[in-house]
Design a protein around this nucleic acid. Structure first.
Lengths: 178, 178
DNA sequence: GAGAATAATGAGTGGAGACTCACTTTGCTA
DNA sequence: TAGCAAAGTGAGTCTCCACTCATTATTCTC
């Protein structure tokens, strides 16, 4: 993570505005939304967006990193089941994360941030297994796979509360007794 | 389903070629692949593609319909668990269906064909419950939700055989004992 | 507060891809 | 097999969008 000299005040302000706008725009319209829309929403010229993020992918990667970090924080506050419920409930509002975790058309790798998430979920799994809430043979890879699958399903399927509860119930039952 | 006069022989031939090419191209590159690539692969001029399918969405809808019909056939040959396994294993090879079932950026509704699939899976569920292989309180909506979720997960996550088996094992356990 | 460095601006460029249409070719029918 | 309607062709249009850069504006430093 190479750090140059500190950013000028206006640059810092704009960078933050752009990230916020990008998060909102991409959450609403998915990663295919245009960079111009982001600039407009941030109240900034298009060139400014590209000064901060030389390519659109850089911008997407930056907000992904923020969102993943947020997920990790949430993982640290909740147990495995609550974490699943929480994230699935939010999936629709976080089109970007889900789409990008899914790699939908856009090529972005964030091994570090994604690794942190996996570690956090790993800790939740250990705790749940120690408490006897998840069967012993369950391993992290399938938990992550289920996690991502369900996020995408919820996002694209437009699940209501009831469907979400019933679907997670099946998965939770499967985790408890494998 | 309005039927005009029958198609001329060359038109029929080309229509079939275009559908085959589109299926292959979109399976490899997803729905974002260009119509020109489809035309090239079909050995046909771009205008011919647009004569048969006035918009790209029409083309996508047409192959979706074929693929859904195929899924229904497979559902009629297999039991619920085998169907899940089969489709998940093929998910990666069928990027289009999955992406479109998921509604990724493209707006296509095929209520009829999708309804048939749901009916077919409904029958599998009934059979499985009658045989005691799936717990009674499980209902069709969550089975469909799990089905679509897992398809997307498998597609985007690039699951290997082992991960696929382990992930499905959790879901199957959840279905058996809810 | 003057000067230098950094940042913002936004019209402009280039490329991709969906779709059109004037013209040519092909298949059907009488 | 002549004639015509159906189908095929592909260069060209149009729109959208990522990205650039010469110019102007804002901060920082002394």
């Amino acid at each position: 993570m190479l750090e140059g000299p500190p950013l000028r005040a206006d640059a810092q302000r704009n960078r933050a505005r752009i990230l916020d706008a990008a998060e909102a725009v991409f959450a609403e319209a998915g990663p295919r939304a245009s960079t111009e829309e982001v600039a407009r929403r941030a109240g900034v010229a298009i060139g400014t967006v590209f000064r901060h993020f030389p390519t659109k992918d850089d911008l997407l990667a930056a907000i992904m990193k923020r969102l993943l970090a947020q997920l990790v924080e949430e993982a640290e506050r909740l147990d495995l089941f609550a974490f699943f419920r929480h994230v699935v409930a939010q999936a629709a509002a976080k089109k970007t994360v889900v789409d990008l975790l899914a790699g939908s058309g856009v090529d972005i790798r964030l091994p570090e941030a994604a690794g942190h998430l996996e570690e956090a979920v790993g800790r939740l799994l250990e705790q749940a297994q120690a408490a006897g809430a998840v069967a012993a043979p369950v391993r992290l890879p399938e938990v992550m796979a289920l996690f991502l699958s369900v996020c995408q399903g919820a996002l694209h399927g437009g699940w209501d509360d009831q469907l979400q509860a019933r679907t997670l119930a099946v998965i939770f039952a499967g985790l408890r007794r494998d």
